[in-house]
Amino acid sequence: MNLDWLDAFLISGLFSVVIIIGLGLLLHLQLGLARIANFGVVGFFGIGMYAFGVMFVKVDWPFSEVWAFFISLAFGTLVAGLSGLLVGWLIADLDEDGVLVGTLGFATAVLILATTEQDLTGGALGLGGLKFPYDIGSVKANEFLWLIIVTTVVALILLYVGRVHRSPYGRLLIAVGANEPLARSLGKPAFRTKLWLFAVGSAGMGLLGALFGVMVRFLDISNLGIDVTLAAMVALVLGGTARVWGAVIGGFLTIGLFEIVVQSYIPFPQGWYGQAIPVVRQMVFGATLIVVLLFRPLGILGDMRRDKLMRSMHGG
């Protein structure tokens, strides 16, 4: 396959955008519908990535690498889902502050575990040996195919999220988020509903973490920083927390802007890309979050329901 027309940075940039959109979509179900502010996105992303990586690299599998790959992928997803179940169980009845601290604490615990459990994770030195489950020639071709596969996975997540939005389950999530005691008095187990939502969302985040690990092929604790959570959160808030397409629009306008436009098309001095631009990116993301929350709290796409409510309450 001749891919000379395709820039390697573009593949990498698009891949980052797709991953953040996937995380933003899953976060949308938790934050946009059920109002659970999960600040531990990177924890679930990371635990899926490392569970997959350790399983794939460290275990001496008695069967082919392709089988080992998919079993490890399922394992990473499952571990992330079970972690979500545990964290969800701990935070489901807490107030917003408790949820924030609990989820942030989980993400920190994952980072510490990945750093200290050197025999398993490689610690600060990292863990190599990951590979694609196929080989179609060049590295670029393999990465391009992986980008297509992961984009398909994220498109399926988008379909699932859209379906939830239109379903009675989606209404239930809105109800639980808006008034949990009332939802309970209607015969719906709010605790179980939130727990299931958290487990499924976390499993999805873990899967995306594992898929990310395959692309980078070297697991490094620098991938477990708060910037992953921040990027998903900023993308979602900018696009519209309560809208299905919010994370998609926001993902392109944030990560897309930095990873594709700035990296590939703006001729900054070479030295800037390593140090200055990532720092500027964090600052811009933080500032964006503040500006959006101050002036357009419902994001670019807004929210038909809440917009209508606001108009009704304040006139206009």
Partner: peptide, 22 residues
């Protein structure tokens, strides 16, 4: 309840549907 007896972001029809889930 005396107050907050409806889900404000859901339509009347959706509120009723939520009630009819059991």
């Amino acid at each position: 309840p005396q107050e907050k007896g409806v889900f404000p972001e859901l339509t009347v029809s959706e509120n009723l549907t939520i009630g009819g889930m059991i």
